[in-house]
């Protein structure tokens, strides 16, 4: 279906308060999270938001700290929009969409300080490196919220490898310290309507997108995306809606 026709259909439905898949404007799709899905990983999670499915894994290694943060662990987040997960995605190095998604997930996890990197230093001056990588399995929109949930769930269940005599021993040791929970809620703006958790068809016709990262009722990250814009009132409205969704999203991170 051409995008113009799809956009018109979606807007016509929105005028009556309806979405193309029957949801209300403030409804997330059904969310499920399964942890411990990859034994070789330090922590892992498979997240479904509707038919969007992503897998997130945590791997840890020992390395050098950044020069400006000696004694602090290093947290890195990557994202791959795999060609198998959507016909629009192509093979090759990460493009700007994948880079943006990874950096927005990273921002919520990092700025919420749920991983206390200052506790990830080692006695010999080296530090733990925590790599969080997301791969899309089936991409049907809202990859940022799915990836953030997955990253959080994988981190919360991660067991650190052991480190003895300068060597990493790949046996599950103690739990990775995680001091809280952060989540993200993403909204799409389509012709003046604001809807949460856009699916792919909605993303393909949206004007703009806003992701709100949160921890403990506070905002820790923001990212506007898309070629369009939002009004002041719309932004304030999204803040209120996002903070209400925070509580519901947290229920999935036990």
């Amino acid at each position: 279906m051409s995008n113009n026709i799809l956009r018109k259909n979606i807007i016509d439905l929105l005028k009556g308060g309806q979405r193309i898949d029957g949801r209300g404007l403030d409804d997330f799709r059904k969310i499920s999270i399964q942890t411990g899905v990859v034994e070789k990983a330090e922590g892992s999670a498979l997240v479904n938001i509707g038919s969007t499915q992503v897998i997130v894994g945590v791997k840890m290694d020992v390395g050098e700290p950044f020069p400006d943060t000696p004694g602090e662990g290093v947290l890195m987040t990557g994202a791959e929009l795999t060609a198998m997960s959507n016909e629009e995605f192509e093979r090759g190095p990460p493009g700007e969409d994948a880079i943006e998604i990874a950096r927005v997930i990273d921002r919520t996890i990092r700025e919420s300080k749920v991983v206390p990197v200052e506790k990830l230093g080692l006695d010999d001056g080296k530090v733990w490196m925590v790599f969080v990588d997301m791969y899309t399995m089936n991409a049907d929109g809202n990859l940022i919220d799915a990836g953030t949930l997955g990253a959080m769930a994988a981190l919360m269940t991660a067991r650190m490898p052991k480190y003895e005599d300068g060597k990493v021993i790949r046996e599950p040791g103690k739990a990775l310290p995680v001091t809280g929970k952060a989540v993200a809620a993403t909204f799409a703006g389509i012709n003046g309507h604001i809807l949460v958790d856009p699916e792919e068809r909605e993303e393909s016709v949206m004007d703009a997108r806003l992701t709100i990262g949160m921890r403990d009722g506070k905002i820790v990250a923001l990212q506007k995306g898309g070629n369009g814009s939002f009004t002041d009132e719309q932004i304030e409205g999204m803040f209120d809606r996002a903070l209400a969704h925070e509580k519901k999203l947290l229920k999935h991170l036990k």
């Binding site: 990212q223 814009s229 002041d232 932004i235």
Partner: peptide, 10 residues
């Protein structure tokens, strides 16, 4: 219209 908005922090 707000055309760019990014934040990190608390």
């Amino acid at each position: 219209e707000v055309v760019l908005l990014q934040m990190d922090g608390d």
